[in-house]
């Protein structure tokens, strides 16, 4: 028991600093991929709703593929496949071959690409929930598309979409554990290394589980209050 406490402490043999750093890295990767997912998801939703035919079909295919292929495969494909693609491209065009892409970027990009496919569906549904008459009214008042988006779509969609985005965030947080396969030392990877080098896998995986539970609980609480805030005009 004393042994376990030393291993989890802040002392020279303790893994606490590395595990906490892993937590921060997990949060950073998840936040980055969430941001990538939101930007790309909005674009995809726009493409599905208002884009020309070919763009609409492309966005549809993107959604079907990225939601139908395992996240692990997407991460492996990007991490191991992207460099060989870049290499063959640079050979074809005679560029100087760039080095390996940083795992952080590839990791958050691959989780972000998957997240975008889910977020696009959410945004599409959110815009669909706004009554058509409001768009017609906005046009009748002479609103431009951008003003209509800012004043009519955004405030209402944010309210409808927030709980669903909270769900996507939880999935992002858990998918970020898969980035461990690229060697990025986020929480999962750190616990794996700790388990391997101390031969206490039960202890370290248990601690990692507890830390993930803390992260998911804290963020679901945050989304709960965010939802209450965005609904603040709706009470009473």
């Amino acid at each position: 028991m004393m042994d376990d406490l030393t291993l989890l402490g802040f002392g020279p043999d303790g893994w606490a600093p590395l595990l906490l750093k892993g937590c921060l890295l997990t949060l950073a990767v998840s936040a980055t991929s969430m941001a990538i997912g939101t930007v790309l998801g909005v674009l995809l939703a726009w493409a599905r709703l208002k884009g020309p035919g070919w763009l609409r079909r492309t966005a549809l295919v993107y959604g079907v593929v990225l939601r139908g292929v395992p996240e692990l495969l997407v991460i492996l494909l990007l991490y191991f496949g992207l460099p060989s693609l870049i290499l063959s491209l640079s050979e074809t065009f005679g560029w100087e071959a760039p080095g390996l892409p940083p795992p952080f970027l590839v990791g958050s990009l691959s989780v972000g690409l998957v997240s975008a496919a889910y977020q696009a569906e959410i945004f599409r549904g959110g815009v669909g929930a706004i009554p058509r008459g409001q768009f017609e009214a906005a046009r009748a008042m002479g609103f431009s598309d951008l003003l209509c988006f800012h004043r009519i779509v955004l405030p209402q969609v944010a309210r409808v979409v927030l709980p669903a985005l909270g769900n996507v965030w939880q999935f992002n947080l858990k998918d970020s554990a898969l980035i461990a396969v690229t060697g990025l030392s986020e929480l999962m990877r750190t616990s794996l290394v700790a388990a391997g080098s101390t031969r206490h896998p039960f202890l370290f995986f248990g601690v990692a589980m507890a830390l993930y539970l803390v992260l998911t609980t804290l963020s679901s609480t945050a989304f709960h209050y965010g939802g209450r805030y965005s609904n603040r005009w709706d009470r009473g």
């Binding site: 858990k174 554990a177 461990a180 388990a195 896998p201 990692a208 589980m209 539970l213 998911t216």
Partner: peptide
Amino acid sequence: TFLFRGTPLILQIFMIYYGFAMV
């Protein structure tokens, strides 16, 4: 629900495969 929805599946798999082997 709290335990299994709040942690990544990959961690659960590792816990069962590597962690339980040490019990």
